[in-house]
Design a protein around this nucleic acid. Structure first.
Lengths: 198, 198
DNA sequence: GAAGATACGGACCACGGGTCCGCTTTGCAA
DNA sequence: TTGCAAAGCGGACCCGTGGTCCGTATCTTC
């Protein structure tokens, strides 16, 4: 099997960088003033090492994001209801979006950094594609609901990192209130398929 | 009145810069590779002039955007239905969002440039605030609809420049189809307030 | 037309992402 | 244990970009 074997020091440094970046992004105010040099310095590593390990800034962000996202992904792909695949669509869609929202609330700076510095639009990122496909798939199982492709985009747009950041930061909307509002909104969208039918 | 009087050459140069930037953004593929030096060169003007006239990159973008947006704003604030204030809310909300969408379709690159280079999140821009206030105000006139603040944000999020760009560019969704989908989505959201009442 | 204010413009600066290459470490094999 | 590629290291370096500065040119006013 072609699974590359990594040298011990390379692996150690990779972890150090990941940990340092994590800490820096958590602490900082705006993600763009965590510089690559900062990260490498905080990790006690040269810039060259950092760039060889992750390719570029976007690569580092992606790696961090993916690592943090892993538990959520697993819960969605093979976990118990209300996130897992056994959930009826009507319930699962709000649960999915709530999970996304919570994730972004818990990782505000990181999500922000990824979306804005992610080398172009966030819509090219594979993790966005994954969410979109998943959501669209579930939406399609809801009878009477049309335009699942656009609907999935629109619903995900309501959880964009910078919007979340704005609401949580500038408008000081408390976490639970925000979750309730999003859920209410999503539920409304799902119900709308049936609204005009009577 | 304290209305500063501008020197003739200053005014001329300002216009030249605006026109040049407009052309460059319209032509380019990705907005971030229109550089300030490019703009000043295309306008036949020094960089100093450009920066004195507009402050910084975001200032230039904002000025351009505002200029383009003016007709739409007027139509919204004092025009005939379905955009103007005389329109019943149920109709006006989709019309407003359709107008935003069309504007972003017609000015893809510019809107993109402004949202991503706009010195931080787009949610701090005053034009966003204006749209949001307006939309929220109209939403509040719709009986049975709650959470107008969040709903306004969520609906506007569905017209984000990079989403529009993604759909129009990568997914090749035709203009009319996109408008129809957005309108359908918006109408659904509005109807949802009444869905659970019977 | 002279004088003061205003604007011009391009050389210049700071800074951040990303590269390069001589040196070190590691891991395998004899 | 020792030898020796190969893999990895790291910080000096490069480059492009936004933004500044100031001597010079242009406008306005009297």
């Amino acid at each position: 099997m072609p699974e590359r074997t990594f040298r011990k020091d390379a692996a150690r440094n990779r972890e150090a960088v990941l940990a340092a970046a994590d800490a820096l992004f958590a602490r900082c105010e705006r993600p763009e003033d965590v510089t690559m040099a900062d990260v490498s310095a905080a990790a006690g590593v040269g810039k060259g090492t950092l760039f060889r390990a992750f390719g570029d800034r976007a690569g580092l962000l992606r790696a961090l994001y993916e690592a943090r996202l892993k538990p959520v992904r697993q819960a969605v792909e093979a976990g118990p209801p209300p996130l897992g695949p056994a959930t009826p669509p009507q319930e699962r869609v709000p649960a999915l979006l709530d999970a996304v929202l919570c994730f972004k609330l818990d990782n505000r700076r990181l999500a922000l950094a990824l979306e804005e510095s992610g080398s172009g639009s966030p819509y090219q990122a594979e993790h966005y594609e994954r969410w979109h496909r998943m959501l669209q798939g579930v939406l399609e199982q809801i009878p009477g609901l049309t335009g699942s492709d656009f609907t999935a985009h629109a619903l995900l747009a309501a959880t964009r990192a910078d919007l979340v950041e704005h609401l949580a930061g500038a408008e000081r909307v408390p976490r639970e209130r925000m979750r309730a509002q999003l859920t209410h909104f999503v539920t409304g969208v799902l119900a709308s398929g049936h609204a005009g039918e009577e």
